[in-house]
Amino acid sequence: MTRKAKREPQARGTRGRTFLYAFAAVISLAGLLDATYLTVLALTGETATCGGSTGCFEVLGSVYARIAGIPVASFGVLGYFSAFSFAIFTGFGYERTRKLFVLTVWAMFAMTLWLLYVQAFVLHSFCRYCLFSAAITFLLAGLVVATPPPRGSED
């Protein structure tokens, strides 16, 4: 099999789909920036001030902000970078990465639900940076639902 054959024909994807994946990549970038900023704060021992609100201090300084000593935000960096990469590849016609994109987004969605639960019912505080990230993940999940698999796809 040649390298050219591995890359499935781009013709399958319509312009609309390409646009949606490009949009998904752009919003993943926004999430990547947010998660990178929060990771740096966690590594330097700072907590964001959220413009005078105490929410970030309480959320980012809590035990739920780390898993086995690793900042939760760093998993966000990994998730958003993966989502961005898979969206780019899918947008360029690499159909096999679409499944990975979908899987990544749903994993992030599940994690986001857990983090929202912790903020709402355990800590009773919300961090704006975390809410921004949650909004991006919801948007990505919406895009996954709105973008049907191409014709002939197994899923």
């Binding site: 990547l32 990178t36 960096v77 970078f81 990469s85 780019i88 590849f89 690499y94």
Partner: peptide
């Protein structure tokens, strides 16, 4: 191009971070 874009974003994230 997709490889270059992903690589560039990865490097920018790492460098910026």
């Amino acid at each position: 191009l997709p490889f270059l874009i992903v690589l560039a974003v990865g490097l920018l994230t790492l460098g910026g971070g």
